[in-house]
Design a binder for these strands. Structure first.
Lengths: 280, 280
DNA sequence: CAGTGAAGGTGGCATAGACCACTGGTGACG
DNA sequence: CGTCACCAGTGGTCTATGCCACCTTCACTG
């Protein structure tokens, strides 16, 4: 029989488009047919179908559940921003933030971290990996590196509650002053995905921050990964001749520095807030 | 015979780790063995090896070139930030920015865009898709939506050179005043990947911006996608009691608003710069 | 000597099939 | 009636294989 030429050169794309239409006719959370069923219906092999589904999973359209099936994602896909009409009302960082220490050791700085902190590669640092939670849901992983001699006697429990910067000042006499932070997009690797509860290769934000005290001495090098499906950065930009009204000068926080670490501070200057999206 | 248990449960992970070690012993740009060679050497099938390579390609460690081979990525991998010791010296947005208009039409706003711009869904808007280039290399795609009655007679050529905001003021008497912008991580789809020249599902930054003029009227809704392997955001945060010296108050720009669109403005307030990484 | 075209190697796409791990229901058993 | 073992169905992983498109190389041709 006459084999009709495919609309798209790639079967994968044809399958993806079919699934996108299918998803749009469903409600969030609805189940969709099984992989094997879809293979038969679309006349493609399972690897081909799975590769199409992979794409929709990493873009946040579908979710898979082992042994149960595939479902339309609850939260809207990333492209469909929820920056609704009321753009004036900047959403604040919401939810209650908590921490869970995953690892707490003292190790040698090594070449890379030593260079960052301006200390010898052989100098000892306190290395802390902690999970940051919002309303008990994993939001980010934070890897802290602090010169060990700055924080003698620091205990893992100290990192689970309260403001680390306040703690530094009150207990160790270290006054944090400024930080340089970089933000870039990334995708989760296996470990990150497992820890923050998203599929591998999901979009995420990678923060890197070097914090200095009032004497210009580096006191903290942080490297953190924020899940991309629940976190985004919102900023208000002043473009015109007069500065816009800054309604919420307090209760604002820097992306990558959860509220608990800046409690009571009102003197941050960058007009940025990190926003947590509802779990849906 | 006694089959040795794999160090990792997944062959894919074993292959990935092997490749990571291989990469670290190479210089950027070096070729690595072909897929079929590696399959034989590691005793895995080609799909398995390819899936491991896929992961390293999305994370920016390897690059594939059809018909030529696989190579160690030139730019350092995303995790290895180049925020070298000299953290005080904030790198500026570099390179010469240019634009190429991909699409220029007048269409009805539609429900979503109409809501953003506070106009009727049936109202006409000028829709512009343009490629933003740095030193003639694609850096981002920008999708602009402007109410058509604000910019009568606007021509595609007007969008290829100069500052759009200056143009709005000089030619149409529209004074942009402030904007609310959101930033979130995403991955490229097929079209975006093709346009900015990266593999599908590569990390990218998604910007969404709603700009208003001095009367509070929305004048521009922009949605743009920046490649993640060449672009990142660097910000200086003031944490202490005294504000840090702001050395470079001029020549600084907002991420997502290339320098050409803010030429001559010195009154931006957020302490942020977007940094373009060298092509390598 | 310059141009050309075939060959071989490379990655890109797709197939068919097998086995494993996990889930949820169902039916047998106490 | 409650409990538990089992089983069918699901996604997760891996194999072996084929064909195609692309690039480089090099011998051949003009």
């Amino acid at each position: 029989m006459a084999s009709e030429p495919p609309r798209s050169a790639l079967k994968r794309e044809r399958v993806r488009d079919y699934l996108m239409e299918l998803v749009e006719s469903c409600a969030p959370g609805d189940p969709i047919p099984s992989e094997r069923t879809l293979c038969e219906r679309l006349g493609v092999s399972r690897p081909t179908l799975r590769s199409a589904v992979d794409e929709l999973v990493t873009t946040g359209v579908l979710v898979r559940e082992h042994g149960r099936g595939m479902f339309v994602a609850r939260a809207k896909i990333t492209q469909e921003l929820a920056l609704d009409g009321q753009a004036h009302r900047l959403p604040q960082a919401s939810g209650t933030w908590a921490s869970r220490v995953l690892e707490f050791t003292t190790v040698q700085a090594g070449a890379r971290v030593g260079r960052k902190l301006h200390i010898s590669p052989a100098a000892e640092i306190t290395y802390i990996a902690r999970l940051r939670l919002v309303d008990d849901e994993p939001m980010a992983i934070e890897y802290l590196h602090v010169p060990a001699d700055l924080v003698p006697g620091l205990h893992a429990d100290d990192m689970e509650s309260g403001d680390f910067y306040d703690f530094l000042r009150a207990r160790h006499g270290v006054h944090v002053h400024e930080a340089v932070q970089s933000i870039e997009p990334t995708v989760t690797n296996d470990e990150e995905a497992r820890l923050i509860g998203v599929p591998v290769l999901s979009p995420a934000l990678l923060f890197e921050r070097l914090t200095k005290d009032d004497t210009g001495r580096p006191v903290e090098y942080v490297h953190s990964v924020y899940r991309g499906d629940r976190y985004r950065i919102v900023s208000r930009l002043a473009l015109g001749d007069a500065a816009p009204a800054t309604a919420q000068s307090a209760d604002r926080h820097h992306p990558g520095i959860p509220p608990g670490d800046l409690a009571g501070r009102g003197d941050v200057t960058a007009l940025m807030v990190g926003e947590v999206q509802p779990a849906g």
